[in-house]
């Protein structure tokens, strides 16, 4: 992959994406509430959040598809609300729903988008060949897109989105419904693009994918609740340390653990209970002893490093608590 078109490139000083206090309301519903962040050139920024959190709304605003209710967003240095057409020429977009033409073949789709993005005719063949190779669709150029498997479709959609070498890419849940092997290949492509200086903003609800991003933004109920590298998020999200507790009767053990000294949070996590405590080395043996005393056999607690999912659950829980508190406070006002 060649670097993005110089003519379309972002000015080096400004961040590739700069969002400030972005808000989007649909009637009484606030889909996006004062979101601010910035992404630099070549950065892979992941947006993580449950369905309906506002990820798609954010991406659509940045693509100029929705008009922000308040706040400002600049993509490649250009104000999205004021000059959406100038932004559109500088971005590639993969919408959540597959949106290439199923009744057209692989190359017909690519030719169409090359034409729409006014790719120079002299370069068209080369770029289409590159996109085909990148998607691993060599030999299937004339297959109708409707007949491709999910993973190939996604890679083709990515290939179509970079034909005009945009400096900024928006990918809205690009890997949903795709098998793990295809997902891994897809992420390799994203990293290649990033290495070439393309800024990638990608939304996902796969926790493991967040680890592939340079930085992650956690988003819930339209608010940005955390922003940082995967390591930073995991380190700072929990107040305390994490224990994985295995025992016989999880259902009976959980309320006991929740009520124990030094325990800040406890939740079922598969066949274990993940317990956030103030001091893992001291509380682990205490919990084991407590459960044994109550007749629950085989209790073993060992300290673990928090996963992205732990952080996510913890952060979303805190955000919900804050929202409830502020709502109560607002309600209490005369």
């Amino acid at each position: 992959m060649n670097p993005p078109d110089a003519a379309l490139a972002t000015t080096s000083a400004a961040p590739a994406i700069a969002v400030d206090g972005l808000t989007k309301r649909f009637g009484a519903f606030t889909a996006l509430d004062g979101v601010s962040f910035a992404a630099g050139q070549g950065e892979i920024m992941g947006f993580l959040g449950p369905n309906g959190a506002g990820k798609s709304t954010l991406i659509r605003i940045l693509c100029g598809l929705l008009h922000p209710s308040a706040g400002q967003a600049r993509v490649a240095g250009i104000d999205v609300a004021r000059q959406p057409e100038a932004v559109r020429a500088r971005i590639g977009y993969m919408s959540q729903k597959f949106s290439l033409y199923g009744d057209l073949s692989v190359v017909e789709n690519l030719r169409f988008f090359a034409g729409i993005y006014s790719v120079p005719r002299a370069e068209m063949a080369g770029r289409i060949a590159y996109a085909v190779a990148m998607a691993g669709l060599g030999g299937q150029e004339n297959t109708l897109v409707a007949n491709l498997a999910g993973g190939w479709k996604q890679r083709l959609a990515l290939g179509a989105a970079i034909l005009h070498r945009p400096p900024v890419l928006f990918l809205d849940e690009p890997t949903s419904g795709v098998d793990p092997e295809s997902r891994r290949r897809f992420w390799e492509l994203i990293h290649t693009l990033s290495g070439d200086g393309v800024t990638v903003l990608v939304s996902t609800h796969y926790m493991d994918e967040a680890e592939y991003c340079h930085r992650i933004a956690l988003i819930a109920r339209g608010r940005l609740i955390a922003l940082g590298t995967p390591l930073e998020i995991k380190r700072h999200s929990l107040d305390g340390e994490l224990l994985a507790l295995a025992c016989a009767d999880l259902g009976r053990a959980l309320p006991l653990v929740q009520g124990a000294a030094g325990v800040r949070d406890a939740a079922l996590f598969g066949s274990r209970i993940h317990v956030t405590v103030d001091e893992a080395a001291r509380r682990g043996p205490e919990l084991e002893a407590l459960l044994a005393a109550r007749g629950i056999a085989g209790a073993t607690a060992r300290p673990i490093a928090p996963t992205m999912e732990d952080s996510f659950v913890s952060l979303v829980g805190k955000a919900a608590l804050n929202a409830a508190t502020s709502a109560n406070a607002a309600g209490a006002r005369p």
Partner: peptide
Amino acid sequence: RGTMELLVSTP
């Protein structure tokens, strides 16, 4: 078919 969302994101 959902193809319009991509089309309107182009110039």
